[in-house]
Design a protein around this nucleic acid. Structure first.
Lengths: 108, 108
DNA sequence: CCAACATATTGACAAATCGCGATATGTTGA
DNA sequence: TCAACATATCGCGATTTGTCAATATGTTGG
């Protein structure tokens, strides 16, 4: 159930990229005008600008990433900041690994 | 390029299941009537029967798994046997892991 | 409360994917 | 060469996804 949505969320290059950018906000986004650090993540407007897609599409993509459990929102004032949920992402990768690979196999 | 097709290939429960079944053909399929072992994989007809989908859909799904590099065909007589390409699968998982996770992070 | 703004939701339509039946291709045994 | 069979490909309607503009919701400062 969960993993199906998670794979669907990844099945789009913009959504993948957003997740990658959020790995290192300092390297990928300008500082927030509010002076806020990236501790709580990045605001939607910055993600939109970087991705070069419309506001509505950006919001929808972030919603899909959120439903997949990959990002966590923090609302501060009129802004919503999103950051990666590293634990959920790790869990997903472990689960996918369990599905995809054979336990004994040591291929690399 | 490659990883996009690979994620697409996984974005379908029947295709995921086929890959899982092929992890252990002895456990998931009856022996080939020809007496052939599963060394070269499983014939399409058995996969079709197990998946409960049409012949054309089965063939197409296997083709998608093949394009993704997840399975290898061996033609013997009028049969085509498919088995997992463990190396490619491992490579895919490593690549996805590199994209999805942050190097230093040790979440579990 | 209102105007301005950030984000979310809705409605629409094109493009991609699902899954099938029909048909084509390739192979073997007679 | 032909009939039977295994698999692949084609063409199709149905469903899902991509992406947008328009609109709704929620928040703050005045």
């Amino acid at each position: 159930m969960a993993i199906k949505n998670q794979l669907k969320a990844l099945n789009n290059s913009a959504r993948m990229q957003i997740l990658e950018w959020l790995k290192d906000p300092d390297a990928n986004f300008p500082p927030h005008e509010s002076g806020l650090t990236f501790e709580n993540g990045v605001c939607v407007a910055y993600i939109q600008e970087k991705a070069g897609i419309s506001q509505s599409t950006t919001s929808q993509y972030i919603s899909i990433l959120h439903q997949a459990g990959f990002v966590l929102p923090t609302r501060i004032g009129k802004w919503t900041y999103y950051k990666r949920d590293e634990e959920k992402i790790s869990q997903f990768m472990q689960e996918l690994n369990g599905i995809m690979t054979i336990p004994g196999e040591e291929n690399d």
